[in-house]
Every structure is written in C-alpha cells, then in structure tokens.
Design a protein around this nucleic acid. Structure first.
Lengths: 185, 185
DNA sequence: CAGCTCGCTGACCGTTCGGTCAGCTACAGT
DNA sequence: ACTGTAGCTGACCGAACGGTCAGCGAGCTG
C-alpha cells in the first residue's frame, strides 16, 4: 500500500471526526507512522491534503447534480432516480459529506470548501425550486444535515454499520418521505 | 450591559459557527472590544467560557428529559408533550444544541461536553426504547442532527428566521412525522 | 562505479495558541 | 485622605502550530 493513499484516508477520517482545524499534521503523521516532514513531502500543505481528501466526493456530487440544473423540467422518474443516486453517494462518501456539511460554513476562503458550499447551495435550489414554502425548505435542510449527521454518528448511538443494503433501503425510505414534496410531484 | 454576559454570548456564537478549537481567545476579545487578558479575567480559561456558553442549555435539556427516564411507561399525550418541549428547546437553544451535536464527538474529555454527549445518548435511548428497528433509530438520528443543522444553517440557505411561530409549527410537524414511531405509539 | 530519483527525516523558522502576572485607573466605603 | 476592590491591560511564557530545507540511505540506470 502507498503512503500517499494512506495519508489521504487517515486525514479524511481525522478531519471528519475531530475537525479540520483541530487535526494537526503531527497527529496525521503519527497515525500513519511517519514524520510530519513526510506528510508535507506527499502533500504540499495541509490544505492540499484537505483537497485530496474531499475533492473527489465533491467532483462526484457535481456530476450527479449537474444534469439536473433545470429542476422544474425533470420528470417524476428522474426525481426518483436522482434521489437514489444521492442516497448512494451519501453512503459511499459519508465521511466527506459529513465533513463539508458540518465544517463547510466555518472554513470559508479555502477553495475546495467554497466549491462544496456552492454545491450545497445548488442542491438546496434543486430541492426547493418548485416548492418555495418554508416547511419544504426546512425539510431539505433536515434531510441533508440529518443524513450526514446520522451516517457518521451511528457508532456513537450503537447503530450497526451493517448490513449496508438494509441501511440503504431505510435511508431511501426516510429521505423520500422527507423530500416527498419534490420526490413525488 | 455587562462584559461578562457579552463575552458569553459572543463566545457561544463563535464556538457554534466557527468551531471551538478554531475560535481563539484573541478573536473573542476583538469581537467584544476587549483585550485577551480581560477575557481571561472574566473566565478562568477557554474551557470555562465553553461551560458558561452551553452549560445552561444542557441543564435545561436534562430537566426536560429527566422526568421521562422510564420511556416505556409514559402515555401518548406525554410523548406529544415531550416533543413540544423538545422542539421549543431546540428553538431557544439552537446555537448550543448545534454546537454540542456537531462538535461533541470531537471534544471528548471536556467535562461539559461529556455531559452533553451522555445526554444525547439518553435521548437516543428515550426515542428508540420501544422501537429497536434500525430504521427507527436512523429516524431519530436524522431528526436530531437534521434539526440542529437546519436551525443554524438557515441563513446560509436563504431561509428566514421569522416568523418564529411558523417555524415552530413546521418543525413540530416534521419532527412528529420523523419520530412517528414513538410519538404516536 | 557514478549519477540520479524517491521516500523520508531532524533541525529549524516565524507565528499563534492558551495562560500568567504585575500593575494601571476609576470608584466606593470608611 | 486612605484603602480596597473591580475591570482591564501589555509584557511575557512554554507549547504547538504549519511550513522550509539540507541531507540521509536505498534502489534503479548508465
């Protein structure tokens, strides 16, 4: 296994659970069994490490949201399709999503975080494009923040991580219910 | 106005939005128009400031959860009562709740945070006491984390803070729906 | 063997962190 | 007028931060 990829994974886990600013390069180095200098050999800066950690998840998310940037034009089955893709992405990138959902607002001016924040805004517009009521917007916020929180706090609330398929089905059910206003229109 | 209370309010806002570790005493001092030394005159340490900022919210929460520590014994109307008290508490202490929900897991070994984490665990037990299914537990996690996220990110998602009464009604509706398994049983 | 790159390291840099301390000013009680 | 005390301050401390740099040994290539 490569130190480069190890560092990415370790940094992501620490950034997501302990917070970006609360995670030192020294700490990452210790977890990887390397020196701080080695971390900075593989990644030019702490910010570059953050970019590598959550960048791919944001790219993938933009891929998914991209085709639907005319939310009032898409059909019902496409909305369902989107919801499934979205839930799958939440499951695949749970640490990344949890990270930029919860720490995004506090890390402005970091390029990769700004991309994430802009993406969240686009998502909000997508989900509330045709439903301007306050409650519908609140539903979106709760669904997004709630899923991100729950998927990363499962271990603290004695929730099992397995079986993945059952979690997916339940999450799809709950998210569909929460976003019913857009998912079933 | 007292500097003491000013500092508490400023610190709470900064801790909740920027994060505890990311907020320096210097920053709090500047926002309050004081020197860092003055902050440490009013509060013995950064940790004491955190305790003052979120302690009252935790005390109040324990008051609310306390009477219901036999969840399988309470009646339906009591569950409804509890949900209303809980939503009111979320609205009154939104910054505090957002703070220890999102930063609680990463700030272990801080006494006041440990109290908060223990409280969250008690809440989880309360809501899922008679419903051990995976989906019901996920519902609780999404409701808690989602409400905390949404109530502190409203301004970022162009959600209005007013009118308070409409937000309360909508939140009660959504939370009741999410926690239907326990709220209506 | 010489030369080169790759992964990695310790020593070191300037800055900022939370926290301590002696001392300042304004004011109230005696 | 003397004495506290409350509120506040700048100077300073050791530790930890992100980051730089010269140089190490191993392995591949000519």
């Amino acid at each position: 296994m490569s130190s480069h990829e190890d560092l990415r994974i370790i940094a992501l886990a620490e950034f997501a659970t302990a917070g970006y600013t609360a995670t030192s390069l020294q700490r990452i180095a210790e977890l990887a069994g390397l020196s701080k200098s080695s971390v900075l050999y593989h990644y030019a800066s702490k910010e570059a490490l953050l970019e590598a950690a959550i960048g791919p998840a944001i790219d993938r998310m933009i891929e998914i949201v991209g085709p639907f940037d005319r939310p009032w034009m898409i059909r019902d089955e496409e909305r369902r399709e989107f919801l499934e893709a979205f839930v799958d992405l939440l499951l695949q990138y749970r640490l990344e999503v949890h990270m930029f959902i919860n720490q995004g607002p506090s890390l402005v001016d970091v390029p990769v975080i700004d991309r994430a924040n802009a993406l969240v805004l686009r998502l909000a517009e997508f989900f509330s494009a045709n439903s301007t009521s306050l409650e519908d917007k609140m539903r979106f916020g709760i669904a997004l923040g709630g899923a991100a929180y729950m998927l990363c706090t499962v271990q603290n609330l004695d929730l099992p991580v397995e079986p993945q398929e059952e979690i997916r089905a339940a999450l799809l059910s709950i998210m569909g219910e929460l976003l019913a206003a857009v998912a079933t229109r």
